[in-house]
């Protein structure tokens, strides 16, 4: 178990180093940082002096090592556009994105598994067919279109939910700001969360349904029925648990994508999260922010993958090989 975790952490470090290299290359070679920082009137001498002061004339490895050293300490430099430390900028906007992503991820998982199980058990029902058809729409509509449609229906026509922003937020200790504690904050969360989670929900639902149908055909389900176990025990005990093994992987990866792809939803709803920050930074070629964002998303994916691997361990006893002696009977 410990060896397994250490191995996975080692792999994670390799991934992060690779992403750091890409991120650094972006920082160093996309455009000239000096040109981005100074005005048009700056003389060539001043530029050279600045270049020297920034260490841009040092060998590649020295620069990369310095970048890494700073990154580990959370120092990604100063934003060109906002002239503030990048890390502070990202941290101040991270709560908004994480709140949105976790809520929509949770919604996607709960409704995805629920609908998936329902449509698998009532395969020929009218409601099941309706859900399946609607899910096709959910899969095929682009996220921004769903967002715009929801705004049109609920904000413009019905005028019951706000169309942009995060509402009123409450600052919690530790620099976390939350919209979950105020009515306007909760109301503002609804439309973006649905927009962001709808695609993931349909994906999880279709996956759960397919897996569940597969598992329901398994011998151990037949045997469980032949032992007279209740439908409830068979469906939700024996079948669902086996269904969840592959679902966990996909859901984990989807949570990563939700955080990463929150960009579109955040833009549509003017949600003050890191996605919107990233878009604005791209427009202004604010390379330090872009580089830091890249690293952040990579870190999120790596951590989620690590958690998913550990969940596998918890769910599937066959992966726990530490009791090796038992297999010989």
């Amino acid at each position: 178990m410990l060896a397994f975790i250490l191995r996975r952490i080692f792999q994670s470090v390799i991934v992060m180093l690779t992403v750091a290299l890409v991120s650094f290359a972006l920082f160093r070679y996309v455009g000239d940082p000096v040109t981005s920082m100074v005005g048009q009137e700056t003389s060539l001498e001043d530029r050279a002096a600045l270049r020297d002061a920034l260490g841009l004339n040092d060998p590649f490895f020295v620069q990369f090592a310095r970048f890494l050293g700073n990154a580990v300490q959370g120092d990604f430099g100063i934003s060109y556009r906002l002239q503030e430390p990048v890390m502070g900028l990202i941290l101040s906007r991270l709560p908004a994105t994480l709140e949105l992503a976790l809520i929509s991820g949770a919604l996607a998982f709960i409704f995805g598994v629920g609908f998936g199980v329902y449509t698998a058990l009532r395969r020929r029902g009218i409601i099941s067919n309706a859900i399946m058809t609607l899910s096709l729409i959910g899969v095929s509509l682009p996220t921004f279109l769903i967002g715009v449609l929801l705004i049109w229906i609920f904000a413009v026509e019905l005028q019951i939910l706000p169309s942009f922003g995060r509402g009123e937020v409450v600052a919690l200790p530790g620099g976390w700001s939350t919209g979950l504690l105020t009515p306007s904050g909760r109301a503002s969360l609804i439309l973006p969360a649905i927009t962001l989670g709808l695609y993931q929900m349909t994906l999880i639902m279709r996956l759960v349904r397919a897996e569940m149908l597969e598992v329901l055909r398994a011998d151990y389900i037949r045997f469980a029925r032949a032992r007279g176990l209740s439908d409830r025990a068979v469906h939700f005990g024996h079948a669902l648990k086996n269904t969840l093994v592959p679902v966990i992987t996909i859901t984990g990866l989807q949570l990563g994508s939700i955080i990463a792809f929150a960009i579109i939803t955040e833009t549509v709803f003017q949600w003050p999260g890191v996605g919107a920050l990233f878009i604005n930074s791209v427009r202004a070629v604010d390379v330090p922010v872009m580089a830091a964002y890249l690293m952040l998303i990579a870190l999120v994916f790596v951590i989620i993958n690590l958690i998913v691997d550990l969940l596998y361990y918890a769910v599937d006893p066959r992966l726990r090989v530490d009791r090796g002696a038992g297999a010989s009977a």
Partner: peptide
């Protein structure tokens, strides 16, 4: 269902797949 297991038991062909692997 009340009959199955209680009055009539059943043994299937393949023991490798008749037991739920997660329990």
């Amino acid at each position: 269902r009340a009959l199955r297991g209680k009055r009539i038991g059943m043994v299937f062909q393949d023991p490798l797949t008749s037991l739920n692997p997660l329990y």
